[in-house]
């Protein structure tokens, strides 16, 4: 079930250390919507995605844009700063205790003969597949999506043909944040979370992106599948608490065999 989620999660390929914290904000937003407005996270995820889109685009326009020409390390520092601020704002507002969103929808279980299906996981899986498909259609079939792929493929080339690069970057950042926001809302009834959850989520997403190859969209998809399968197998055959051992061993193995990641291009 984590497959679809990790797919979305891995698609955004900007070096974004605030990734996990954006997801946690999506979770808290789902929590607020559910406790204050009585909106089930399985319905509220769309609102979370919209909110995070605006937030992501604003971070890109207001902060990242200013240092887009600076070396990569500067972007990492900036995003680390954003991550710290986001985590501590969450801490200030919601406190450090782990919480979990209650969802009447998510508590239900369907019995299909001898099998019983957890509705929460089924819905999460289904929505994740739909969102991933929608993202694919957007990136491959629409003009803005193609501009995003072009800018990812060759930023200088995109500039030369007259792409409004700022607009494209803001859209890409916003969509990445929206995906993460939706994912956060969707897992909020399953996964207990606290402000510090963001860091481990960021690390997982980096793992995926590095395995797939930095900057490769198909790589992010495949990396997402591999990491979640490795973690599921690790949880079954080792111990649930050792599942990261499996995914990070996979990371090391792949880096030894293919230093640029599965779909990565060698730096020239």
């Amino acid at each position: 079930m984590a497959v679809g989620l990790t797919l979305i999660f891995g698609v955004m390929r900007v070096v974004n250390f605030a990734h996990g914290d954006m997801m946690v904000w999506g979770m808290y937003l789902a929590y607020v919507l559910s406790t204050r407005a009585g909106l089930d996270p399985y319905l509220g995820f769309a609102l979370c995605a919209a909110a995070l889109f605006v937030f992501g685009a604003a971070v890109q326009r207001g902060l990242v844009d200013r240092i887009v020409d600076a070396p990569h390390e500067m972007q990492i520092l900036l995003m680390l700063g954003v991550a710290l601020v986001m985590e501590n704002v969450a801490l200030l507002v919601f406190g450090p205790e782990p919480i979990r969103v209650r969802s009447p929808l998510g508590a239900a279980t369907w019995y299909l003969g001898p099998l019983y299906v957890d509705v929460a996981r089924l819905v999460t899986f289904g929505v994740a597949i739909v969102l991933t498909a929608a993202l694919w259609v957007f990136l491959y079939r629409t003009d803005l999506g193609r501009q995003i792929r072009a800018a990812a493929d060759n930023p200088y080339g995109a500039l030369v043909i007259g792409t409004d690069v700022r607009r494209v970057y803001a859209a890409a950042f916003g969509i990445g944040a929206a995906c993460v926001g939706a994912a956060g809302a969707l897992v909020s009834p399953i996964l207990p979370f606290q402000p510090s959850t963001g860091l481990s989520l960021s690390v997982t997403s980096f793992n995926i992106v590095i395995i797939g190859g930095m900057g490769s969209l198909p790589g992010a998809f495949v990396g997402g599948v591999l990491v979640s399968v490795a973690e599921s197998l690790g949880a079954v055959f080792l111990k649930p608490s050792l599942k990261e051992l499996a995914s990070f061993s996979l990371l090391i193995l792949i880096l030894i065999v293919r230093p640029a990641g599965l779909f990565g291009r060698r730096a020239s």
Binding site: G157, V160, V165
Partner: peptide
């Protein structure tokens, strides 16, 4: 900006071609 210059009617075929290598010719 380059976008403005292109919109005014100047197209540039840069040194090294600067294509989008993982996209199709049509794209």
């Amino acid at each position: 900006s380059p976008a403005d210059v292109v919109a005014r009617g100047i197209a540039h075929v840069p040194e090294g071609r600067q294509l989008f290598p993982t996209m199709t010719v049509l794209e």
